[in-house]
Design a binder for these strands. Structure first.
Ligand SMILES: [Mn+2]
Ligand SMILES: [Mn+2]
Ligand SMILES: [Mn+2]
Ligand SMILES: [Mn+2]
Lengths: 219, 219
DNA sequence: TTTATTTTTTAGGTTTGTCTAAAAATAAAT
DNA sequence: ATTTATTTTTAGACAAACCTAAAAAATAAA
C-alpha cells in the first residue's frame, strides 16, 4: 500500500506516542503534529478505513499489526538518514532531525536498503535510538535512565529522550553529547538536581528534568 | 520564496523544454508532466503571479531570471543525488532517475552543499549532464552529437539526450554506456543508420534515432 | 447525582492540484 | 477568405488535508 506524506507523519506519531501510552488520544496527536484536533479526527477515520489503526470514536487509537510495520519502515528511514547526515556529511547531531523529517518520506525501498549497506548496517542513530533492520527488528538497548544509576559508576550517554532544539541546545551548552562519559557524584533531594563529573574532571550540574531524558549505559 | 513539489516539477519542466524551444507551449508541458492541459494552464497562472515565469495566454511561457535560478537549484539537487546514488550506493545509471525525481525536492540547502562536498564537487552526473554549482553555474560541455563526428575518430560517450527507460534499455542491450569509447565506421544514407566499432572491436549498428540522442567527446 | 469542565466529533469552509466537457483563440487547409 | 483542425483557456467538480465554530460525549467536581 502507498501512503501520503501526511498519512506517514500520523502513523509515525501514533507509533511514538504508543511508547508512552498503550492507547493514543486525539489531543496527544494534535499536540505532536501541531494540527487541530478536528483535523486529527478526519485523518483517524481515513487511517482506520485503510486498516492501519484501530479506532473507536472517543476512545483513542492504536496501530494495527500492518500499521506497526509501516511505522517501523518510516522510523528506519528517518534514523538511517540521520546516521548518514552525521557520519558522512558532517552534520551536527543536533541539526539532523528536520532534514530527516523530509527524507523519511522518500519511497524507494531499494534506496533504503542500499543506504543501510553503505552505512555498514548501523544499529543506533546519532541520538542513540535503535534503527529497525530491513525486517523491522529493533536492537535491544541495554541502556537505563540516568536517574537509575548509582553514584560513582562510570557510564556513557547513549540516547536522549527528545529531539527538541531546546534540549539539544542545553546539552551542547553543558558539553554533553552521545558517548560522553561521566559519573553521578551527588543527587540533591531538594530539587532532584544532579552533580556529574564528566571524563575531563569537570563538574556539571543538571536539573531533574534534564536527567529524566538522558539515557546511559555502563562502560 | 518557498515552492511546493508540484510547482518545482513545473519549473524544472519549463527549464528543460526551453533547451529545445525558446518559448514553451501548454501542450508540451502537458506531455512532459503527464497532466491535462487545463491543469497546466492553472499552474501557469499561479507561477506567473509568483513572477517565476512570463506567460501570456495562448502565447506560451518562459522562465524569468528568478525562475531560471530556482530551476538550476532543482536541477543541481537532482543531478547531485543521481551522482550519489551511482557513485556511493552502487545504483545502475539507468535506475536513478525516479528516485532523484523525489530527492530533488528535499529543501535544505545546507544538505545540498554538504552532499556536493562529500561527493567531491562533481561536474557531471551519471548521464553526462552538467551539475550546476552552488551559484548555478554550469560547466561547459565540449561534447558534440554523435551524428556530427567524422568517420574513424575515437570518441567517448559523455551524455544521452533523454532519460526514458526505453532508451536506457536499448543502450544497455547494445553495451553502450557513459565512457564507452568507439569510432563511427560507416553511415548509411538509406536510413541514416550507423555502424560503430566499440573499443573491444565489436561492431554495433545503431539507428539514426539513437545516434541523435548520443553525445560524445574526442579522447 | 447533578453540574461544570475537558475532550472529541460533526458541520461547513478553504486551498492546492488535479480532472472533464465545452468554449474560444490560433493555426492550417482549402 | 472561409472553413476546418488544433491548441489553449474557461467553467465547474472533486479529493486531500487542513481550518473554525458549534454540538455531543466523556470525565471530573461539587
Ligand atoms: Mn516527516
Ligand atoms: Mn533520531
Ligand atoms: Mn520531481
Ligand atoms: Mn541525469
Amino acid at each position: 500500500m502507498i501512503f501520503t506524506v501526511a498519512e506517514e507523519n500520523y502513523i509515525k506519531a501514533v507509533y511514538h506516542l504508543q511508547q508512552e501510552q498503550e492507547t493514543v488520544s486525539t489531543n496527544a496527536l494534535s499536540a505532536e503534529l501541531q494540527t487541530r484536533p478536528a483535523s486529527v479526527t478526519d485523518m483517524l477515520k481515513k487511517l482506520k478505513s485503510k486498516r492501519i489503526i484501530s479506532y473507536e470514536p472517543y476512545h483513542g487509537v492504536k496501530l494495527s499489526n500492518e500499521g506497526r510495520k509501516v511505522a517501523l519502515g518510516i522510523v528506519r528511514k528517518h534514523r538511517l538518514w540521520e546516521y548518514f547526515l552525521v557520519d558522512k556529511l558532517q552534520f551536527g547531531w543536533d541539526e539532523v532531525h528536520e532534514v530527516a523529517e523530509e527524507l523519511e518520506h522518500i519511497s524507494s525501498t531499494k534506496l533504503v536498503d542500499k543506504l543501510d549497506a553503505f552505512l555498514g548496517y548501523p544499529k543506533f542513530d546519532p541520538h542513540g535510538d535503535p534503527i529497525p533492520d530491513s525486517k523491522g527488528r529493533l536492537a535491544a538497548q541495554q541502556q537505563e535512565p540516568l536517574a537509575a544509576i548509582p553514584l560513582n559508576k562510570t557510564v556513557e550517554i547513549t540516547a536522549v529522550g527528545s529531539q527538541s532544539s531546546e534540549l539539544l541546545e542545553l546539552l551542547k551548552h553543558k558539553g554533553l553529547q552521545m558517548g560522553t562519559r561521566l559519573e553521578v557524584k551527588k543527587i540533591f533531594d531538594f530539587d532532584g538536581s544532579l552533580e556529574l563529573k564528566s571524563k575531563n574532571q569537570q563538574i556539571v550540574t543538571i536539573s531533574r528534568d534534564l536527567a529524566s531524558v538522558l539515557f546511559v549505559k555502563p562502560v
